[in-house]
Lab assay of single mutants.
Amino acid sequence: DEVTIHLGDKTIRVDGLDKELLEILKELARRGADEEELRKEIERWER
């Protein structure tokens, strides 16, 4: 499953996201997290 996250004018595509992680990323994005913060969160989950 590829998920596309839209952040204002930026788009991040991620393969096979965990549903819980997806919810966390959506919440972070709502709070104004930037792409770098979201990537760090994704990397934390992948470990």
Rank of each mutant, 00 (worst) to 15 (best):
D1T: 14
D1E: 13
D1G: 13
D1N: 13
E2F: 14
E2V: 14
E2W: 14
E2Y: 14
E2Q: 13
E2M: 13
E2S: 14
E2H: 13
E2L: 11
V3E: 13
V3K: 08
V3G: 13
V3L: 12
V3H: 11
T4G: 07
T4C: 08
T4S: 10
T4Q: 11
T4V: 15
T4D: 11
T4E: 13
T4A: 12
T4N: 10
T4L: 13
I5W: 01
I5A: 02
I5K: 02
I5N: 03
I5C: 06
H6P: 08
H6L: 14
H6T: 13
H6R: 07
H6F: 07
L7V: 15
L7I: 15
L7R: 02
L7Y: 07
L7P: 04
L7D: 04
L7W: 08
L7S: 04
L7A: 09
L7Q: 04
L7E: 03
G8V: 12
G8I: 10
G8P: 05
G8R: 03
G8Y: 08
G8F: 11
G8D: 08
D9K: 02
D9W: 03
D9S: 03
D9F: 05
D9P: 02
D9R: 01
K10C: 06
K10D: 08
K10V: 15
T11R: 01
T11G: 14
T11L: 13
T11S: 13
T11P: 07
T11W: 11
I12F: 08
I12V: 07
I12P: 01
I12A: 01
I12W: 04
I12H: 04
I12R: 00
R13S: 14
R13H: 12
R13W: 13
R13E: 12
R13K: 14
R13G: 08
R13N: 15
R13L: 14
R13V: 14
V14W: 12
V14P: 05
V14D: 03
D15K: 08
D15C: 07
D15S: 12
D15R: 06
D15V: 09
G16T: 11
G16D: 10
G16A: 09
G16M: 12
G16P: 04
G16V: 11
G16S: 11
L17C: 05
L17H: 06
L17G: 06
L17K: 07
L17D: 02
L17V: 12
L17S: 07
L17N: 06
L17M: 10
L17A: 07
D18M: 06
D18K: 05
D18V: 09
D18S: 12
D18N: 08
D18Y: 04
D18H: 09
K19Y: 10
K19G: 09
K19A: 13
E20P: 04
E20S: 06
E20N: 10
E20G: 12
E20M: 10
E20K: 12
E20L: 10
E20I: 10
L21I: 05
L21N: 00
L21G: 01
L21T: 02
L21C: 01
L21F: 05
L21A: 02
L22E: 02
L22Y: 10
L22I: 15
L22T: 06
L22G: 04
L22N: 02
L22S: 03
L22W: 09
L22D: 01
E23R: 09
E23C: 04
E23Y: 09
E23K: 12
E23S: 10
E23G: 06
E23P: 02
I24D: 01
I24S: 04
I24R: 11
I24M: 08
L25T: 00
K26G: 04
K26W: 14
K26V: 14
K26T: 09
K26M: 14
K26L: 14
K26S: 05
K26N: 09
E27H: 03
E27F: 04
E27K: 03
E27M: 06
E27P: 00
E27V: 05
E27T: 06
L28N: 00
L28E: 00
L28P: 00
L28K: 04
L28G: 01
L28H: 02
L28R: 01
L28V: 01
L28I: 03
A29T: 08
A29G: 04
A29I: 15
A29M: 12
A29V: 14
A29P: 00
R30A: 14
R30H: 12
R30W: 10
R30P: 00
R30V: 10
R30L: 14
R31N: 14
R31L: 11
R31W: 10
R31V: 06
R31M: 10
R31K: 14
R31T: 10
G32H: 02
G32N: 03
G32E: 02
G32P: 01
G32D: 02
G32V: 00
G32W: 01
G32K: 01
A33I: 03
A33N: 02
A33M: 05
A33H: 04
D34R: 07
D34Q: 10
D34S: 15
D34C: 03
E35C: 07
E35N: 04
E35R: 03
E35I: 13
E35D: 05
E35Q: 05
E35H: 06
E35S: 07
E35K: 04
E36I: 10
E36K: 08
E36P: 04
E36C: 04
E36L: 08
E37Q: 11
E37G: 04
E37D: 13
E37S: 08
L38K: 01
L38G: 00
L38Y: 05
L38S: 01
L38T: 01
L38C: 04
L38P: 00
R39H: 06
R39K: 11
R39S: 05
R39L: 15
R39E: 06
R39V: 08
K40S: 10
K40G: 08
K40P: 00
K40W: 09
K40C: 03
K40E: 12
K40D: 10
K40N: 12
K40M: 12
K40Y: 08
E41M: 12
E41F: 10
E41D: 00
E41A: 12
E41V: 13
E41G: 01
I42V: 06
I42T: 01
I42P: 00
I42S: 01
I42D: 00
I42R: 01
E43F: 03
E43R: 03
E43A: 03
E43D: 08
E43H: 05
R44K: 11
R44S: 08
R44N: 11
R44C: 08
R44G: 05
W45E: 01
W45A: 02
W45M: 01
W45L: 01
W45D: 00
W45H: 04
E46G: 06
E46R: 03
E46P: 04
E46M: 09
E46C: 06
E46V: 08
R47I: 15
R47A: 15
R47K: 15
R47G: 15
